[in-house]
Design a protein around this nucleic acid. Structure first.
Lengths: 233, 233
DNA sequence: CCAAAAACATGATTTTTATCATGTTTTAAA
DNA sequence: TTTAAAACATGATAAAAATCATGTTTTTGG
């Protein structure tokens, strides 16, 4: 289960924030990190528990989601190889405000809190990268917030499909979204009822914009999808 | 218009992030900052323009808002004395993604980009404070995102009134919210149509939870308002 | 391979929310 | 002060979206 060699060089291969740290610190991190494999559906951490470090995805996919007051899941981020997670709560000095679950079998490195914090103190370059990362996330969250408040569900679903494409890309065929999400998960990403997401996806299919084959989603007409998302930026 | 002495000691008086910097840097900031007074309705900066530094509110109130794709305003933050703004775009290396407007006559210090960045590089304590600030904002944005996706407007309006109370507090009477916002601005904070916000406020009044006197809003039954907001946390 | 559960799909209905219309009140500028 | 514009208010209507109901298909564990 615990395999150092698996991601000995992960921070080099992928351009995670840790690449921006000074070499000596990168080496320190590589020595002390702990690598694990999480099966599809396994929980990395749970909303409400205390952070003991940060996670860096070596290979695989992870969803980060809030539990709404009525228990409904809201997916707030999708993560891929090279992405870091768990830093928000750690830097705030909070418990986790979201849960992280592997969307497929995933290799993940764990960097202990003390190491992370001490390197962050000694290396302004890494600190800047973290600030940039946080700023970018904040930006994304604010845009999403505005769209959630102002755009109809049809547009938000189109935008979500494009976002999934941006995040995980296509399979070798160049049209199939490279991730398997349930309709419920798509709904929880869009912020709508599952039935609504299903219905709209069927509409998109009827319009020829997508093709549906179980959890496989093929983007047939990207340009029309962009129009359906009604994006100005 | 430009008055150094006005807020010579602002970073001491209010507990802004800059207090956490080392004394020599605080002094440097105090020397180089530029203070201005903005009249109610005046723009500090506009969405799409480039940041040349960060702003620190010495006294007064500011709203930060996005322009939705159809031109509708979405207020994403309310700021008060001691708060810093403009750092998100600067740290991301972006243009401003939001506009800042004074809600009343407001004293604001401007700290040039180069100074801010150089102090940030030299002082890990300040860098940590900035990371904490960003993390907290990100947290707030994610919670708001979930509520926007999952809660009905009535609950969100109640929550917004409580949020205004948390941010600006009460007037001397202990019940009147200490800020004047138009119904439209309240709607743009809640994320709904102006008429809906007006209607719900009237309902709250009928239920005896608030009293309305023009733009003055009095919170008569805070506990019932908390119940109406249906907050678990 | 089979059975049960979960996920998907779609129609009908209800609820929520936005929009439109119209009148009143407040605010601000001449 | 007066007057036009903006903000506020509220009813009526339309549109959007959630919920409920029911059947089908796909997954998954034994």
């Amino acid at each position: 289960m615990n395999d150092h060699s698996t991601c000995q060089s992960c921070s080099q291969r992928f351009n995670s924030v840790f690449c921006k740290a000074k070499e000596e610190y990168v080496n320190q991190i590589n020595e002390q990190k702990i690598c694990n494999v999480y099966k599809r559906g396994q929980i990395l951490f749970n909303e409400g528990s205390y952070p003991f470090g940060v996670y860096c995805i070596n290979d695989g996919k992870v969803k980060l989601s809030h539990q709404g007051d009525d228990g409904k899941e809201q997916i707030i981020r999708l993560l891929k190889a090279g992405d870091v997670l768990g830093y928000r709560a750690l830097l705030s000095g909070d418990r986790y405000s979201a849960s992280a679950v592997a969307l497929e079998d995933t290799q993940i490195c764990f960097i202990p809190k003390d190491l992370f914090v001490s390197v962050l103190k000694l290396d302004p370059g890494l600190a800047f990268e973290m600030m940039k990362l946080l700023s970018d996330e904040l930006h994304r969250a604010e845009i999403k917030l505005t769209h959630l408040a102002q755009k109809p569900i049809r547009e938000r679903l189109a935008e979500t499909l494009l976002f999934i494409k941006e995040t995980y890309g296509f399979e070798e065929d160049g049209i199939t979204l490279n991730v398997r999400l349930s309709r419920e998960e798509i709904a929880n990403l869009v912020g709508t009822a599952t039935e609504s997401a299903i219905r709209l996806l069927s509409e998109f299919k009827k319009d020829g914009m997508v093709e549906l084959d179980g959890k496989k989603i093929k983007i047939m007409k990207p340009k029309e999808l962009i129009r359906a998302a009604n994006l100005q930026d």
